[in-house]
């Protein structure tokens, strides 16, 4: 088990800088959220507007994909370089996604009838 972390006081300048940095970061998150909400609207709108299914299906799947990447990399901090072992986690998540995709492919194509 690990050792206790030292309690270290930040300098005033550092502290102000970090506060500001956090606030800017939060603003980015809100922008990302706005994008997600917009995409959701768009997805529902194209379905309600009754476009051709050949357009709607790939389009809303694309929107969903972008939303998920936004969630993962912005809200869930997968893009944050400083987080511990984040490269390992990225590998794992994409590996999981790949396996998930294989399962989809198989159960949509080769279940016999």
């Amino acid at each position: 088990m690990g050792h206790d972390t030292h309690v270290q006081e930040k300098s005033q300048v550092q502290y102000d800088y970090d506060r500001k940095h956090n606030a800017v970061h939060m603003r980015h998150q809100v922008v990302n959220f706005a994008i997600m909400i917009f995409f959701t609207f768009l997805a529902f709108a194209v379905v309600v507007a009754d476009f051709s299914p050949y357009f709607i299906k790939p389009f809303i799947l694309l929107l969903a994909g972008v939303q998920v990447v936004l969630q993962l990399y912005s809200f869930m901090h997968m893009g944050e370089k400083k987080a511990v072992h984040i490269g390992f986690i990225n590998t794992f998540v994409w590996m999981g996604a790949l396996i998930a995709f294989t399962i989809f492919l198989a159960l949509l194509t080769i279940v016999w009838w």
Partner: peptide, 12 residues
């Protein structure tokens, strides 16, 4: 239902 789904999931 579809029993082949069991076979797939089991072997996955």
């Amino acid at each position: 239902g579809n029993t082949v789904i069991w076979e797939h999931l089991f072997w996955i």
